[in-house]
Write a protein that binds this DNA or RNA. Structure first.
Lengths: 325, 325
DNA sequence: CTGAAAGCGCTTACAG
DNA sequence: CTGAAAGCGCTTACAG
């Protein structure tokens, strides 16, 4: 590989001038630029970004922490992040936590060892304490979750409204008794959604809502749904906190000889591809996943540009999509 | 952030000695090591890996090219890659091509600009010509696909055998007329699978097999399946080249009032989570996705260690899992 | 066993 | 408008 020195020698200018050409410094004479460019092409020169990063004390990378990659939900958010990052010529380093704090520490090291300039935490990929610690030293933003009150920018949908609307939608379709299966952990989104379904219960007197804690694995969840449904045959509406869990609800119903969308309606959160490949297709609360990721990068950039940039809270709009359940 | 110089000053040794301690050089006296370690802890020193990388002329990162992240199939392979990479203390840089050559070039630049030391191409994330070019300059391996003959290591399952077994499985279950829906592009796996189903047709005289080219989007595929099934009502077995496409087959059957797994059997490739969340659950050819990724890293490491390491072709074993279709 | 010094490939104030 | 030189934070042959 040729270096900047080789280029300088080849075209007869100094490395300083070559550097200026590479960095589009308008101060260099047009004629000089041409000659340097010619040399660069002739030698197939590529700047060594490691050297540049060392010199400029930036890594040009941001860390993206996600709970797990094995979920189309996060994949879609990542696509938005990649788009955002690309526009700023940075590289994303994807850290999949897989619910293991050791993994998290491993990735957060990258911030301290100058391999990443900032970090985006997607969903519940970090604890409140740990975030406080990290955010003190490095630019950080949250995506899809938040800790209140904490001086960290975030982007999310309004989960309370979304859950409220989902419950109203079911009520309008004639449901009298709705069960909301929440997440397993008390995340902000989970709590907000609970608040939303409760508000729906208060506002429309025709409907009753119960909140049920979910299960981590699909099989336990399916059994739990069946049990709840057997014990409460009056339940005719289900709100599931993810599309995968929505698919589990379909299965539970089918096993009980109930028809999803007829005997029991289902609305699931997220609107990933999962909600489109089930039969029947899941009605869902569509989150703007791509945009959530994209905006997270945008927020992070602001934090990285200014030392004391103001904290921002961004709420994107969702959409309740009624399909076949 | 403190640097190696600060540490040296703090403990009274030279930066050279501190460097040796950091790198576990056994030559330093135990007593010295202790004192240096104390200083490192006192100053919360973290080595700047960018500097180290520049000095040692390695990036400590490998590039992982995938067609798209929005697919549980690739997500699972990535998990294996992450595991492998972690064990070698490298970082993966994930490049999602999204079927856009511009994206690919963007990521391949990382190799030339010293930000990555080697590259793994997952599935059909590159063309044969481009790979030849890249492999000349950088360590490279392929995962799940291959180009023959080409001096590049790869890891894959035996797709021909897998498709053969899937077809035999359907034949044993009583199917007389099988349709194999292949991929849209002529990848090695697609071709090998076609060969496999043809071999099954030759060997068991009781069954006929037709090969049908798939469609890129789900809706077109569903319509195509319906059309084929309407024109050929004797078809009683379907082999789909992905779980997502398997789910589309389920939907097509249900819309035609056919019962998946009874009127028409389905075996889909891959065995991702998708195959577990459909109702009925898809029978499938389970690929060792995690191991495929893990072994790809292992192969790449060998290529990176030695300039002229021999080319290896690794075939991992698959498994036909019969569930409800 | 330890240290002084060169050097990895860049950028950037400073001088001219 | 261009160049000489310092320096980013490390590693490593070499000398002692």
């Amino acid at each position: 590989m040729s270096t900047i020195k080789d280029v300088a020698k080849y075209c007869g200018y100094s490395v300083a001038t070559v550097s200026r050409v590479i960095n589009d410094d308008p101060i260099v004479k047009a004629e000089t630029r041409e000659k340097v460019l010619l040399a660069i092409r002739a030698l197939k020169y590529r700047p060594n970004l490691v050297a540049k990063n060392l010199r400029t004390q930036k890594s040009n990378s941001i860390l993206v922490m996600i709970p797990t990659i094995a979920n189309p939900y996060y994949a879609e958010v990542l696509r938005g992040i990649e788009q955002g990052v690309k526009e700023t010529e940075m590289n994303p380093i994807i850290g999949t936590v897989e619910f293991d704090p050791k993994h998290m520490d491993h990735f957060l090291e990258l911030l301290d060892s100058n391999q990443a300039d900032g970090v985006i935490f997607i969903s519940s990929s970090i604890t409140s304490d740990r975030l406080t610690e990290v955010a003190k030293k490095h630019p950080a933003v949250m995506c899809n979750e938040y800790f209140d009150p904490m001086p960290v920018s975030y982007v999310s949908i309004n989960n309370e409204d979304a859950a409220y609307e989902a419950a109203c939608e079911l009520a309008n379709a004639g449901c009298k008794q709705i069960a909301y299966f929440s997440g397993v952990r008390d995340s902000s989104s989970s709590l907000d959604r609970s608040r939303g379904v409760k508000r729906a219960e208060e506002e429309c007197e025709s409907v009753a809502v119960s909140i049920i804690r979910g299960e981590d694995d699909l099989h336990s969840l399916k059994n739990k749904i069946r049990r709840i449904l057997e014990e409460n045959p009056e339940i005719d509406g289900l709100i599931m906190n993810s599309d995968v869990n929505g698919s589990v609800a379909i299965r539970a119903l089918v096993e009980m000889d109930l028809v999803p969308g007829k005997d029991v309606r289902i609305i699931s959160f997220d609107g990933t591809i999962i909600s489109e490949i089930t039969t029947p297709m899941l009605s869902c609360v569509k989150q703007p996943l791509f945009d959530l990721g994209y905006k997270a990068v945008w927020l992070l950039e602001k934090q990285m540009k200014e030392e004391n940039a103001p904290i921002e809270r961004l709420i994107l709009s969702h959409e309740v999509t009624i399909r076949e359940t």
